[in-house]
Nucleic acid binder design. Structure first.
Lengths: 192, 192
DNA sequence: GACACAGTATACCGAACGGTATAGAATGAA
DNA sequence: TTCATTCTATACCGTTCGGTATACTGTGTC
């Protein structure tokens, strides 16, 4: 692993454990086995480091999520696919997932929240797209696509987080059945 | 409002807006119209300030929640009461509610998370107690009281948060019907 | 008046913060 | 060999961090 990759990895570990603001650039550099100028050579600022971390780790995920969110006539199926994608991402990158969730809920006027906004917006758009496409099926949604998608995201994200925590640390296994059950739970609320 | 109360109010504003770690003691003191030693006279450290803020604002709420979570034979009813209590709290103290939620999701090894843990645990215990009491009614829960309570909390908390955000800022109004609908959505997932 | 005590301000501490000027090493191309 | 480019380290910058030693002011008690 080269220095740049090493710095990103260390930053993820530390931001995940203690939060963006509570971690100093000094410590990231030291734990990466480099000095500060090296860090600033690759990332022009602490904020830039966070940006590149989120961008790099989030990009591949977003592409796969985009494909998973393509509606093809069956809402339940699409939601299951999307939920499965979120789950498998959390399985592969538990630390990044936890960091993302923490930033997602962090203070609005904080630097770190600004950095995660692009990812948040894309996630919301992808999921909302499902409900927009399924509008005909669901009947009159009266513009509630947003509310539905936010509810869906909240349910899945929080559920994954809780499973991550209950499993002690960073192991996570969610069966297809459990995903189906979650989606079922969500959908009934809408139809009723 | 005396100085102590003024400091607490200012701290809530700033922590809410930018997060615990991103706000300096200096700024809290200045915006409160006092100097640092005054702040340290009332709260022996920055962490102590956060603790007292959470304790003071959270105590009354927890007591009311405790009463709301007392199971009296009707699970749906009890869940609606508990959800209603959470909602009415978020209506009255939107900033504190948002801060609580941010800390709830913040990094585990961060000071701020340690400070909010007591509140988090009590909230979880209160809600879990509902499901423990209702165990007979629900049939064999196989120790899933925890999972149910966490799912319930996640659903309600996230829903409120989203309503707060969608409503632009700090206004929130949730009708009894909407609460009933949420609880209904939650329960069907369990029974199915 | 003398005293105690709660509350506040001036002025300061060492440490850590994010960030940088500068120079040296390593590498490959000409 | 020379040169440019990429990467890295030494040593430093001004600022802010959380926190405090000390002394002063008000107020009520005796």
């Amino acid at each position: 692993m080269d220095n740049r990759e090493m710095i990103l990895e260390t930053a993820l570990d530390l931001f995940y454990a203690r939060g963006y603001d509570a971690v100093g650039v000094q410590e990231i550099a030291e734990r990466s086995g480099v000095t500060k100028p090296t860090l600033y050579y690759y990332f022009k600022s602490k904020y830039g480091l966070l940006e590149q971390l989120l961008e790099g780790r989030g990009e591949a995920f977003m592409e796969r999520l985009h494909r998973a969110c393509t509606y093809e006539g069956d809402l339940r199926n699409t939601l299951c696919t999307a939920a499965g994608e979120l789950v498998s991402f959390a399985e592969k990158e538990p630390k990044f997932y936890a960091l993302f969730l923490a930033l997602y809920h962090s203070a609005r006027e904080n630097e770190a929240y600004q950095a995660v906004r692009p990812l948040v917006l894309r996630l919301q758009q992808e999921v909302e797209q499902i409900f927009v496409s399924a509008a005909g099926l669901l009947g009159n949604m009266r513009g509630r696509q947003r509310q539905f998608s936010l509810g869906f995201i909240g349910l899945i994200l929080f559920d994954i987080k809780m499973r991550l925590e209950t499993s002690g640390g960073l192991r996570l296994t969610v069966s297809q059945e459990e995903i189906n059950s979650l989606v079922h739970q969500f959908m009934h609320g809408i139809y009723s």
